[in-house]
Design a protein around this nucleic acid. Structure first.
Lengths: 138, 138
DNA sequence: CCTCCGGATGCAAATGAATTGTATCTTAAA
DNA sequence: TTTAAGATACAATTCATTTGCATCCGGAGG
């Protein structure tokens, strides 16, 4: 259950109606949402730039995680509760439907991968591309 | 060893000096290259739009594979020889340095991941973010 | 070697995502 | 209630990428 007020307080962020609306909107969907999609829904209430800044703030704070889709557009989804400002732990596999373009957060964690000598990984992202359950039916 | 002329012939592409130059330039580097980087190097010889079109053609033909970096910019690297027009087999892990922004193709293949019911994956991409060997020294 | 067609290139302009600057407004704390 | 730090809105800009169209050139056929 997502409580915007608590999340904001927990991360020392001022409680504004715009920030609350963004969290509500993103929490609705189990697939990740892009800024353009959010702008379509919230454009009447929130300025485009404000939306970008809110999303960046949320990412920095570890409230949202960002996934790049096929077009290089940023998509956002709520982080698992263990994410912090300093380290993201949302290391699950994402699924990007090449038909409807939606991004899903799968409940599958990313297998550990040993890096070559000299390379130090802080995070790893895994995106599967294909057809999602909804598009498979249609 | 990369032979541009052969690659072009093998894929039924006209032999033009621009196409040859792009292949030469990308083959030089073992890290993936973005269009903006290529444009810096080849901008005097090749038009920006032509560069985009060549890269798209190469991707379609399975000559290059595309990796999105942190900024949502497309980067390109030479495909393994088994890639074809209809299916990319370049399923190795990539490494995106958060310092120098370079993308490396690691010689590590992506572990098989079982998709949930209804989801059908055609390709999977895995990108590790961190500090590369060069930046680790400096 | 010459002709000629289709695909490739170059240039101009448009689109779309994201960022920056700045003035104004709002939250939360004194 | 006052007030300062921080948020928001609006305008303008940057940066990657795409589209339209006229021109050019590679290579197949004569």
């Amino acid at each position: 259950m997502i409580d915007p007020a608590n999340i904001l307080k927990a991360h020392d962020l001022k409680h504004t109606k715009q920030r609350v609306r963004v969290l509500q909107e993103i929490a609705l969907d189990q697939s990740a949402v892009s800024q353009p999609e959010l702008e379509k829904k919230l454009g009447k209430e929130i300025d485009r730039v404000t939306l970008y800044r809110i999303l960046n703030t949320y990412e920095d704070k570890g409230i949202l995680h960002r996934i790049m889709d096929l077009n290089g557009t940023a998509n956002y989804a709520i982080c698992s509760s263990s994410c912090t400002e300093h380290h993201h732990h949302d290391e699950h596999v994402h699924f990007n439907c090449t038909n409807c373009l939606k991004i899903y957060c799968l409940q599958i964690s990313i297998p550990r991968i040993k890096m070559p000598e000299g390379f130090k990984a802080n995070a790893i992202s895994s995106i599967a591309y294909g057809i999602c359950e909804k598009c498979n039916i249609a």
